[in-house]
Design a protein around this nucleic acid. Structure first.
Lengths: 318, 318
DNA sequence: TCCCATATGCTCATTTTGAGCAATTCAGGG
DNA sequence: CCCTGAATTGCTCAAAATGAGCATATGGGA
């Protein structure tokens, strides 16, 4: 690994694979590309790392493009998983598997290349993450079993619950997607946990979300959390937008990703003040109301601002 | 890697190693644990991934603790590198090596366990990153060759330069450590590039920084950038502080990490208003001036605040 | 023509920053 | 015992950013 291995013995040889959360935004929904395993489970596209590419990212791109006929825009490495107990089917002596998780953003959500691939709203897997229409029903349904679980863990568990699910007056933090999922996992409320440990989870799918193969829901949780954080200080939303769009369309995509409703006038003030967009000169009617100006992304903002991104002027009351 | 490999063929078997940037803060300096290779080069501690641990992080901890006799506090995965041309010595058919980079924070900088390990200020490797005493000399020395290089690349190169090095009036962004290092690498101004491509780099060590083995300086750059960003919204600085400390000591550590001077009164206002610390009741003289109150970290801040961390009220003028 | 549904403009109170002046409080020296 | 130096603390004030909400503009259709 090093020019000078400090410990005797060569590096361990491992099986390494890639898993990609490929995200688009169409029709007010944040979508992720999922495939279906022969067992009928939803899964993220994943496959082996190929040796012939110069960089990991290049390998990911070529593999995804070949497999899904999607051209990837923005690509970001998320996390490398290496838990030994990741592969359920293997015994103690199994070779350790390593999995590199990636987030990729694509502009157009074509109906996929492979026949078994489809675009799904990511809230299908995380129903408790969508607060656009007020506190989601899933939260109400999850609260009692969560509280029960937390009570056993004592003070610490209750604080985690409060912090992550915004229960005891604490504010909802839309970025803590992974923390919430892991808490639900620990509490035995998601089917993956049942699959892994054979405990009971009598919750309906609308509450606990649709399960995914292996740890793919965890990868997706990381992807969502990262993206929700990143749009605030990097202009990555525009990777999901068409070349020209109205401010309302932009707002709806940001709301879809972050899962919260935003204050319209303040949203446009922020976006325009930061210089993230400029008018194209054209406008579009279609909505039934006053026609909206069409805008386009201003690349120059990158050199002008330290942290150009879409702040979230959330609706607090009303 | 998946229950159902979508492409024929098993996952590639790879050699996987760990590289750790182990950071402490002592005596006004941010320090990193470095070892020396037989070739005499500085390197981060690195070694093979061991199969017997349940998680990657557990493997890292046990390996570092065995090797350096340091107990790790906070640990965070940084990035996984897999560039095929990473191992200089190998030819085309070489097995690809994967390297997992980690950041770890330790409270006390003991003089290391292994005889060949030592704590070094990280500015030894990145002299242009330390703006505590005003614009560093390294920047002045790097500017001409950088501009020359950028001029060849046209508009785009010049904008990158402006953005990353805060040259044409743009503000210095202390988080872009990796971007700056990579820009210098591309411009052929750091010795690693020379080693890799045999080009000339006539700059003194005080300007271009001390080189490190393989891509370790890149790993360290990522570690510094991540830490600089993270202290702003997560209370990670306290992982580097003793149990009780004065506000000035805290400020000096934050300044050491971020590489900028902060406005004293505003710094304390922020830290106290956020509820990051509380008084222990004791105070400490020693400094020659008015004795300072001793403070301790308040864990409760985690549940009270969405993003508890040390904002940087930088000195602009004065 | 009137109405509906948006888009857009603007105001105002509140908070959060950025800067800097001033008072406090110890140790030490005359 | 008083004065001075060196920090630590306390406070003030203007400027900028944020949170909320009212008011106006402008198209398509009833």
């Amino acid at each position: 690994m090093d020019e000078t291995p400090r410990e005797p013995g060569a590096p361990t040889a491992l099986a390494v694979g890639l898993t990609a959360a490929i995200v688009a935004a169409t029709g007010e929904e944040p979508r992720v590309l999922v495939v279906r395993t022969p067992h009928g489970a939803d899964a993220l596209p994943s496959g082996p790392l190929e040796a012939q590419h110069r960089t990991l990212e290049a390998g990911l791109r070529s593999w995804v493009e070949r497999r899904t006929h999607q051209t990837l825009g923005y690509v970001e490495q998320l996390y490398t998983f290496g838990d030994r107990d990741r592969r359920e089917t293997d015994g103690e002596g199994a070779q350790r598997a390593l999995s590199l998780g990636y987030l990729a953003l694509v502009r157009e959500a074509r109906t996929a290349g492979a026949a078994d691939a489809s675009w799904q709203s990511w809230y299908r897997y995380f129903p408790w993450e969508d607060w656009r229409g007020g506190p989601p029903e899933a939260i109400a349904a999850l609260e009692p079993p969560l509280r029960e679980w937390a009570a056993q863990g004592g003070k610490l568990g209750e604080e985690r619950l409060r912090l992550n699910f915004g229960l005891g007056g604490a504010r909802w933090n839309e970025e803590r997607v992974l923390e919430r999922y892991e808490l639900l996992y620990e509490a035995g409320l998601v089917p993956e946990r049942v699959r892994d440990r054979k405990e009971g989870a009598p919750l309906p799918e609308k509450v606990r979300g649709v399960a995914m193969a292996v740890d793919h829901r965890r990868v997706l949780a990381i992807a969502i959390g990262r993206l929700r954080g990143k749009i605030k200080y990097r202009p990555v939303v525009f990777e999901l937008m068409p070349p020209s769009f109205t401010l309302s369309e932009l707002q709806r995509v940001v709301e879809a990703l972050s899962g919260v409703r935003l204050h319209k006038q303040n949203f446009r003030r922020l976006v325009e003040q930061q210089g993230l967009v400029e008018e194209t000169g054209e406008s579009r009617a279609e909505t039934g109301g006053r026609p909206a100006r069409l805008m386009r992304y201003r690349r120059e903002v990158l050199v002008e601002r330290l942290a150009p991104g879409v702040r979230l002027p959330a609706m607090r009351r009303g």
